[in-house]
Simulated scan of single mutants.
Amino acid sequence: MTMEKTLWQQVQLVKQKSPLVHNITNFVVMNNTANALLAVGASPVMAHARSEIREMAHIAHSVVINIGTLDEYWAESMLIAAEAAHTMQKPWVLDPVGAGATSFRDQTLQRLLQYRPAVIRGNASEIIALANINTTVTKGVDSTAQSNEAIDAGQILAGRYNTIVCISGETDIILNSKDQFFIRNGHPLMTKVTGLGCSATALIGAFTGVAEDKTLAVASAMSLLGIAGELAAKESPGPGSLQMLLIDKLYNITEEEFTAHLKIEQK
Rank of each mutant, 00 (worst) to 15 (best):
G229W: 04
S241V: 09
A85H: 08
A36E: 00
H261N: 14
Y73F: 15
L189G: 12
H48N: 05
L38Y: 02
F27M: 11
I264R: 02
Q146E: 13
S125C: 11
L109M: 12
E126R: 11
N123M: 10
S62A: 07
Q243N: 14
F104I: 09
V165K: 00
Y251E: 15
A219L: 01
G98V: 13
A42Y: 01
A202V: 02
L246K: 06
A49D: 07
D152F: 12
E230R: 06
L203Q: 02
E265A: 14
T191L: 03
T215Y: 03
A153C: 03
S18A: 12
T171V: 08
G169R: 00
I127N: 01
L70P: 00
L94V: 08
Q89L: 14
E235R: 13
V141F: 14
W92Y: 08
C198L: 06
I67K: 01
P188D: 00
T87H: 12
T69C: 08
N252A: 10
L38S: 06
N162D: 15
V63H: 02
L175R: 02
T201I: 13
L70E: 03
G159F: 12
T194S: 13
Q9P: 10
K267M: 10
R105E: 09
A260F: 05
A124M: 15
T201V: 14
L262W: 00
C166Q: 06
K90R: 08
S199G: 08
A99R: 04
I227Y: 00
S168W: 03
S236P: 07
A211L: 10
K178V: 12
C198W: 04
E83C: 05
N23E: 05
I53M: 01
A158D: 01
V64S: 04
R111L: 10
P91T: 08
Q146P: 02
A118F: 07
L130E: 05
W74V: 14
A129W: 02
K214A: 09
